[in-house]
Design a binder for these strands. Structure first.
Length: 279
DNA sequence: CCCCATGTTCGACA
DNA sequence: GTGTCGAACATGGG
């Protein structure tokens, strides 16, 4: 599930542990989520450390502990964080659990595409070198325009998924953005008109902001019915704006949904559509 | 059995 | 260097 706003939601799930000291660590050593990590470092370092705060950047979270201990968690495709009671009994896919003096902080990931990493002494490189977030003012129209120009031949859908420039944007957000901006997902980035670049920029910000409000505003709620989100996986889905049929195809390596009635390919840019999965 | 999945990475290739 | 594509990772649901 996790894209920008969902990651933020999950990050906050561990807030009950902020200020608490870790007493012990439960983990499933050898699981893929630890592929870049020495699990002995986790079990050896974290006990006794107090969780001070957490941050998120794009789809990656940083949990900051006392004495310069930094825990990085990426949720991959199916990862989740949740708080639990101090007596929490780990379930099958609870691959990483921090037991604090007050509660348990659980990382669950049945598909194991997630990642848990630890840095001691210095902040992790990914955090120190992070690009502007999609909601940062420094990611302005000019930055978006320049990035599109640099990837002029690539379909705009693929470019939006580039985490180095648009951290946190995932498959559904990219489709939502392009649908709102009325841009065909297969359109080469360099073939987008200046007006559409402006629309794209505006909708990147708007979708990110709206997602933050809707998804983490209260607890968790799916976006409202007038978003593309709710229609994209329904068979014979209907565009909530035009009432016309939605289309699905693989673009940029991912299943993509769009409204052909509203999102058209510039006539210059034909031949940019590959395999049509569903009408 | 088949296909699919809100992610990332890597190798092969044009 | 740019870009595309398919496969791989591991698991579960339809």
């Amino acid at each position: 599930m996790p894209e920008l706003a969902e990651v933020e939601y999950y990050r906050k799930q561990w807030n009950p542990g902020v200020g608490c000291r870790v007493e012990r660590v439960h983990l499933h050593a050898g699981k893929r989520v630890f592929r870049d990590t020495d699990t002995n470092l986790l079990t050896g370092t974290l006990p006794g450390k107090r969780l001070l705060e957490s941050r998120a950047h794009g789809k990656t979270m940083l949990f900051i502990f006392a004495e310069d201990v930094y825990l990085t968690i990426h949720l991959g495709m199916a990862g989740r964080l949740r708080p639990s009671v101090k007596e929490h009994l780990p379930e099958k896919h609870d691959h990483f659990v921090l037991y604090t003096e007050k509660n348990a902080l659980v990382f669950n990931d049945y598909r194991l595409f997630g990642r848990v990493m630890l840095d001691v002494g210095t902040e992790p490189d990914w955090w120190r070198n992070r690009a502007p977030g999609v909601l940062d003012d420094t990611l302005d129209r000019a930055a978006v325009k320049a990035f599109l120009a640099r990837h002029a031949k690539a379909p705009v859908k693929a470019v939006l998924l580039d985490q180095t420039r648009f951290p946190g944007i995932g498959n559904w957000m990219a489709d939502e953005i392009l649908w709102r901006a009325r841009i065909h997902p297969a359109c080469p980035s360099g073939a987008i008109s200046p007006q559409k670049v402006t629309a794209l920029f505006t909708q990147i910000k708007a979708v990110a902001r709206d997602a933050m409000e809707v998804i983490i505003g209260t607890d968790w709620s799916d976006p409202p019915e007038h978003w593309l989100f709710n229609h994209r996986w329904r068979d014979h889905g209907t565009c909530p704006d035009s009432g016309k049929p939605l289309k699905r195809a693989t673009i940029g390596g991912r299943t993509t949904c769009w409204s052909p009635a509203l999102q058209r390919l510039p006539r210059k840019a034909t031949g940019c559509l590959r395999k049509t999965v569903t009408q």
